[in-house]
Nucleic acid binder design. Structure first.
Length: 518
RNA sequence: GGCGCGUUGGUGUAGUCGGCUAACACGCCGCCCUCUCAAGGCGGAGACCACGGGUUCGAGUCCCGUACGCGCUACCA
């Protein structure tokens, strides 16, 4: 039977790093095996689900290139009737029962966890029996009668008194749990609302999911779901639980406590490249066998064979080829970020990896991304796709070398595409104000450059060097001053390439305009 | 409280059948290159593989215990 996986987020907030990784792994596994990858939006929590979240999930998956779902997107809320029917069928079969116990009010959600632990502690201290519900063995006729009379009830799964549940997890291995540790879980709320465990199982059966790949936070609950599969007479799928991704403090990543910094769209908006982000993500909880650097694995000067993973940098194709559930780790990974540190607000390695992709991506893939960035910054000109095509490609190639994100093209790179760029104070102080003679030297240099008949990196270089000799100053002085004059910055590409790309007219003008800053 | 899962340098990881003087990447430091900054090249600091006990000629790798962390434990998902 061919593999069918699914990603099943609940739209109660934006898509976060952990969720995305789950989606990636499901996608990878499906694509690798020639199976199907499906998406199901688990919007059964009416209070917390929002359309906006759904949109952000869809958008995020599309951005990462994982939106090629093989079938219609399933919205879980649409299946509520089926879930209810399943629960009632179970009552008829005696595998579930109506619990007429009045609903217990639960406190504010901030304290739920604590309440639950507290309650469990007491229950354990009193030696509570999970099979002690007084309605568990109520005769069906009486149960039906009370229900018909309008008495509210929840539906609970009737779990056997003796026995153990067990399953084989592709990541965590054999899992066992004694029935005595599992309560008769609620399938249907007293208001008729189907609960998570029921819904998931019903939908996974209906969608014919063969492999459930999800976060480790579901590991222990899996036993309950297997019990539901059994009750429903369906075969349980294979399970693979993924280690959690932790925040720097060591806690589970959460939208609530960590905010937007863990959301996928934050990375898209910050100028990250999907390929880089995916590459970083796949390494969080999984690694190909014996990852080494290319230099160590291959003899010198050999081409890296296509489709062979030799390091951590890998294409989607390579990921697909090498991915395996068996190599997923069992220990959680920490994802670093620090909202209070603007320079290193997110994981170092992610930043490095993005820079790596920015400088090595094939032009035809990078250019459209740069275009989108320039457009949103109001720096785009259609000329860059027509007459100035070559220039544009050359300029991007020149500046991408030292950029980290797409944002840099409109930020640090602004001077290449517009005249209204800002001057960095430190750069002005260091490269212009330090030498008073530049007040005269800069316009004079401008005059020299203006006279050049052909203007490119080579002619600019010889002109600058000749002029520095003539003026009796070090070439470096003029070079660094020119860099600040032309780009407003103290760092950047080789200055002669900058002259070339900025062009004769603009270079001359900027050199003259900078003189007053000295 | 119970149950489950985990623990290799700051972070991500490699380390299939036990032989490691513990490897790689990011980050950090230094040098080279150089018109600046990156990139690149070279080198360095940083982990007694959570701790304690076993098994063994030999354990990061196997077994037991402890600690710590995380998860689940709900008429949330």
């Amino acid at each position: 039977m061919s593999i069918r996986t699914r990603f099943a987020p609940s739209p109660t907030g934006y898509l976060h790093i952990g969720g995305v990784r789950t989606a990636l792994f499901n996608w990878l596994y499906a694509r690798q095996t020639g199976g199907k990858f499906l998406l199901r939006i688990e919007d059964t929590d009416l209070q917390r689900s929002t359309d906006e979240s759904t949109r952000s999930i869809l958008e995020g998956l599309a951005w990462l290139g994982l939106a090629d779902y093989d079938e219609e997107i399933v919205f879980q809320s649409a299946n509520a009737d089926k879930h209810r029917a399943a629960a009632f069928k179970l009552i008829e079969q005696g595998r579930a029962y109506r619990d007429f116990t009045p609903k217990e009010g639960r406190g504010g959600d901030a304290n739920v966890k604590r309440d639950i632990a507290e309650r469990a502690r007491h229950a354990a201290a009193e030696g509570a029996d999970h099979r002690a519900n007084p309605f568990r063995d109520l005769p069906l006729a009486e149960s039906n009668a009370r229900a018909e009379a309008g008495e509210p009830f929840a539906v609970r799964l009737k779990i056997a008194r003796e026995g153990r549940s067990h399953f084989e997890d592709a990541v965590y291995g054999t899992q066992e749990r004694d029935y005595s540790e599992i309560e008769d879980l609620v399938l249907l709320r007293s208001d008729g609302h189907p609960l998570y465990n029921l819904s998931v199982v019903c939908d996974d059966i209906e969608m014919r999911i063969t492999d459930v790949i999800r976060g480790q936070d579901h590991l222990t609950n899996t036993h309950k779901q297997i019990l539901i599969y059994d009750a429903l007479g369906a075969a349980a799928p294979r399970f693979a639980h993924l280690p959690l991704i932790l925040a720097p403090g060591g806690k589970k990543l959460s939208k609530r406590t960590h905010g937007e910094i863990v959301s996928l769209t934050a990375y898209r908006d910050a100028g990250f490249i999907p390929d880089a982000f995916r590459n970083f993500l796949v390494l969080l909880g999984w690694a190909p066998a014996g990852v080494q650097s290319a230099a160590d694995v291959l003899p010198e000067n050999t081409e890296v064979p296509a489709g062979e993973v030799v390091g951590e940098l890998m294409s989607l194709g390579e990921m697909k080829e090498n991915f395996s559930l068996g190599r997923i780790h069992r220990h959680p990974a920490t994802f670093n970020f620090d909202a209070n540190n603007p320079r290193r607000w997110t994981d170092d390695k992610l930043i490095w990896m993005n820079a790596e992709y920015v400088r090595t991506l094939p032009r035809e893939e990078l250019l459209p991304m740069v275009r989108a960035e320039l457009e949103s910054a109001g720096l785009w000109s259609d000329e860059y796709e027509r007459d100035r095509r070559e220039w544009f490609a050359k300029t991007v190639d020149l500046i991408r070398e030292r950029f980290y994100t797409l944002k840099d093209f409109s930020g640090q790179g602004r001077a290449y595409f517009a005249d209204d760029f800002a001057f960095d104070d430190a750069a002005v102080a260091k490269n212009l104000k330090k030498e008073p003679r530049l007040k005269e030297l800069l316009p004079a240099l401008a005059g020299q450059l203006e006279r050049l008949e052909t203007f490119d990196a080579a002619t600019a270089e010889s002109a600058v060097r000749a002029f520095s000799e003539e003026a009796g100053v070090k070439a470096g002085l003029l070079i660094n001053a020119s860099r600040t004059a032309l780009t407003g910055q103290s760092v950047g590409p080789s200055m002669f390439d900058v002259f070339d790309v900025v062009g004769q007219t603009r270079s001359v003008r900027r050199l003259r305009d900078a003189a007053p800053l000295v």
